[in-house]
Structures are given as C-alpha cells and as structure tokens.
C-alpha cells in the first residue's frame, strides 16, 4: 500500500471515530433526544392543546396544506413560560416539516404516523413555527406561532 493511501485511510478512520464519539456525547452527555416516531397509533384528525397541569401541556399538531392546526384550527397558541410541552405531530395530506425557531424541535410530519418530541419553553417570547419541507405552492406561507408568556 502506498504511504499516501495509508495516511488517507488512517485519517478517514480517525474522523469516523471522532464523529462517533460526538454522537455518543450528544446523546449521553448533552442529553439531546431524537424525535420518536409512533407508528402503532391512529393519527389524530384535529389539532388540540391539552393542559394537564399548570406547567404541563400536550400539543397535537396536524400539518396540512398549508397551515399548522395547533388547536381546533388555530395557528397561534399561548402558553406560560416554564411549560413542558409534549409535541405530537402528524400530517393530513403530504409530508411536511415543523421547526420551532430558536428551539431544538425539528420534526417531520408524515401522513399515517405520529412524530413526537418534548420541549420545555423556559424563555418568554414569540416562537415562530415554519414548514421546512417543500409541500406545494403555499409552502412559503405555511407558518404558525407559539407565544410563551
């Protein structure tokens, strides 16, 4: 084997290991959760915001052309600061994406399945939600708002 070739392979393996360690660190050290896809439930048809306790919410989002149904057709919701929200997302038609700006929540809305992530909104402010998966002519207008007070 040529010396240069050997060096290239060694560098590639070292980089792979480095990234592997980074992934492990993200999962174990930083405790970053990956979205969980739930395939064994029937997806809900309507968006709902359910309050379980004063700082505990469940948000069922239906993404459809071209809006996010947060709560019975509303695209804007209000929650108090410090709330932990269980976000369940599904799609009524095609594949959509949902990114809550300024947070780590980034989910795909896939028809027939439910995607899940948990997020604690500690900082008050307006969180804009955008669709980041091209879904038709109205894609650029598909957005919503979460107001944290």
């Amino acid at each position: 084997m040529d010396r240069a070739e050997r060096n290239a392979i060694a560098t590639a393996v070292a980089l792979l290991l480095f990234f592997f360690v980074l992934i492990v660190y993200a999962a174990k050290g930083l405790r970053i959760d990956l979205p969980t896809c739930i395939t064994d439930v029937e997806p809900f048809k309507e968006g709902r915001l359910i309050q379980h306790a004063k700082d505990r919410y469940e948000l069922h989002v239906v993404a459809k052309m071209w809006l996010f149904d947060f709560n019975q057709g509303q695209t804007e919701i209000e929650i108090p600061a410090g709330s932990t929200v269980d976000i369940y997302l599904t799609s009524a038609d095609v594949v959509h994406g949902m990114h809550i700006n300024g947070t780590t929540v980034n989910l795909m809305a896939i028809p027939g399945t439910v995607n899940y992530a948990r997020y604690k909104f500690t900082k008050p402010g307006v969180y804009h939600v955008v669709c980041h998966e091209f879904c038709g002519v109205g894609h650029q207008a598909m957005q919503a708002k979460i107001v944290v007070k």
Partner: peptide, 20 residues
C-alpha cells in the same frame, strides 16, 4: 397535586398521549 404527578411520572420517564 397535578404538578407532583408529573414529577413522579418524569422520574420513571413515563410518557402518555391523550386520545379523545
């Protein structure tokens, strides 16, 4: 207390989704 309920559920990492 409902807040305490979720503290306990978080401690065992029990998550549920509400259906109609």
């Amino acid at each position: 207390d409902k807040s305490q309920l979720f503290k306990l559920l978080d401690a065992i990492d029990f998550r549920f989704a509400t259906l109609p």
